[in-house]
């Protein structure tokens, strides 16, 4: 099967890859580039476990084709921490026990970061609706909401 050559930027690094027409950005990240932080929970855009940003826009990478990444800047969970320094959201997730099995966690963190970029001072209800595209089966969401609220407060103060 003939493959396409795609040039892109991922977490600040220039990355070239080859992919089939039908392969999703998630397939490319996970199977070709071995960036396995984004997870496939459904493949239909319903669970949010594969969330990444594409030129700063939050997307389900399972709904984006690999070829659509041409010339785009992609950010994944692997680029969220600054070296050993966790992003405040990551730190607060750890502190608030906002994760159990952890399979949804990368997607939730990417999604929460996008939410706080748009709305740095959200109400609890805004966080609940803002993260409604990310399924979590373990936590019942409560500690996730608390972690995001706490991180938002810290980020506003910083």
């Amino acid at each position: 099967m003939k493959k396409h050559h795609v040039s892109t930027t991922i977490n600040g690094d220039e990355v070239d890859f080859l992919c089939e027409t039908s392969e999703t950005l998630l397939d490319v990240l996970r199977d070709h580039l071995h960036l396995t932080g984004a997870k496939e929970g459904c493949g239909t855009g319903d669970c949010g476990a594969c969330s990444v940003t594409l030129d700063g826009v939050l997307v389900c990478s399972c709904l984006v084709l690999g070829v659509e990444a041409e010339g785009k800047e992609i950010e994944t969970i692997e680029g969220m921490a600054d070296g050993d320094e966790l992003h405040p959201l990551q730190r607060k997730f750890v502190e608030h026990i906002a994760l159990q099995c952890g399979i949804c966690t990368p997607g939730l963190l990417i999604s929460a970061r996008s939410l706080l970029e748009k709305n740095p001072n959200p109400t609890e209800e805004e966080v609940r609706f803002g993260l409604a595209g990310n399924l979590c089966r373990c936590t019942g969401y409560q500690n996730i909401i608390e972690a995001v609220m706490d991180a938002a407060q810290e980020m506003r103060g910083a």
């Binding site: 932080g37 966790l86 990551q90 997730f93 990368p106």
Partner: peptide, 8 residues
Amino acid sequence: DAVDKVTG
């Protein structure tokens, strides 16, 4: 397990 899970 938490840090490995929040960093992917």
